[in-house]
Amino acid sequence: MLRSPLLRAFAAVALLTLAIFAGQSALAQAPASPSAPATPAAPAAPAAPGATEPNAGASAMVAAPAAKKPDSAIDNPYGIEALWMGSDVVARSVLVLLGIMSAGSWYILIVKLLEQMKMNRHARTVDRKFWDARSVTDGVAALEKNSAYRFIAEAGVAATTDHGGLKSHIPMNDWIPMSITSAVDRVQAAMQKGLAFLATVGSTSPFVGLFGTVWGIYHALTAIGISGQASIDKVAGPVGEALIMTAIGLAVAIPAVLAYNWLARRNKAIMDEVREFSDELNAVIVGSAGRAA
C-alpha cells in the first residue's frame, strides 16, 4: 500500500516536470510563428527555394547598374559638342572656317602628292624612251599625252616651225630657248598651285582660333557676371570651351605648315629634273639646226 502512493507521487512529479519543459518550449517557439506570415517577401517568391537567393543577388546586381546608367549617359559638358551648342553665330562661323581650312589643306596635300608622284613616273619614262628615239618627234610620241615633259618637248618642236612674222626677227638660237623656257615656267606655275593656300592656312589659322577664344571668353565672362557666380565650376566650363578654339587653330595650322614645307622641297627636286631635261632638249634642237624631225 505504501509503494503505490509513492509511485503515484513520483509519476505526478514526472508528469509535472514534462509539462513545465513542454510549456517553456512552446513559449520559445511562440514569437517565431506569428512573424512568419508577416514577412513581406513570402508572397513574392514563386520560384523554387534553391533559386531564391541567386535570383535576388542577380536582380540586385542588375538594379545597381540601372541606377548608375543615367549618370554615365550624361554628355560631356566641356566638350566640342557643348561648345557648338552653346556658341553664337560668330563662334560657329569661326569653327566652320577652321573646318574649311583643314579640309582644304588635306585635299591639297593629297592632290599635290599624287601629282608629284605622276611627275616622277613621267621622268622615268623620259629616261627609258625619249632619249633612245631617233628624233625629237619620235621621242615626243613615246611620252604620255598628259606628261609635262611632252608639253615641253612639243613646245621646242613647235618653235622650229612657228618662226614667222615678227618672230622671224628673233634669231632661231634665241627663239627656241625662249619657247622651251616659257613651257618650263608654265609647268612650274602648275606645280606651285595650292601651295599658297597651305601657306595662308599655316599662317592665319592660329589667329582665327585665337579670335574664337577671345570671343568665347568674352561671352563666358559676361554670362558669369550676369549670374553673379564666379566659382570654379561656373568658370571652368565656358573658359575651357573657349580655349578649345585655340587648340583647333593649332591643329589646323601645324599640318598645313608641314605639308607646305614638304611639298615645296619635293617640287624643287622635280623642277630641277625638268630644267635639266629642258636644257638637254634645247641643246639637241639647236644642235640639229632646228631640225626636230
Rank of each mutant, 00 (worst) to 15 (best):
208 V>R: 05
191 M>G: 14
200 T>E: 07
173 N>S: 12
202 G>A: 02
197 F>V: 09
194 G>V: 09
207 F>V: 05
188 Q>H: 11
194 G>W: 10
190 A>Q: 13
170 I>E: 01
193 K>V: 05
190 A>P: 01
172 M>V: 10
206 P>Y: 06
191 M>V: 03
198 L>A: 00
171 P>K: 14
207 F>W: 03
179 S>A: 15
194 G>E: 08
181 T>K: 15
179 S>Q: 15
194 G>T: 08
189 A>H: 12
175 W>G: 05
180 I>Q: 03
190 A>L: 08
203 S>L: 10
209 G>W: 09
176 I>D: 08
177 P>V: 08
203 S>E: 04
201 V>Q: 01
179 S>M: 14
210 L>Q: 05
171 P>S: 11
208 V>P: 03
201 V>I: 09
171 P>I: 00
181 T>V: 11
211 F>R: 01
189 A>Y: 11
183 A>K: 15
203 S>D: 03
170 I>K: 08
181 T>H: 13
198 L>D: 00
187 V>I: 13
209 G>V: 12
185 D>S: 15
170 I>H: 07
209 G>P: 10
177 P>F: 07
183 A>M: 09
176 I>F: 07
171 P>Q: 10
189 A>G: 13
175 W>C: 02
198 L>N: 01
210 L>T: 04
189 A>C: 05
210 L>W: 07
197 F>H: 05
182 S>A: 15
203 S>P: 06
202 G>D: 00
193 K>E: 12
211 F>S: 02
195 L>V: 02
203 S>K: 03
198 L>V: 00
208 V>Q: 04
210 L>S: 08
210 L>Y: 07
207 F>C: 03
182 S>V: 06
199 A>E: 07
207 F>T: 00
199 A>Y: 04
204 T>S: 14
212 G>K: 11
208 V>E: 04
175 W>I: 04
209 G>L: 09
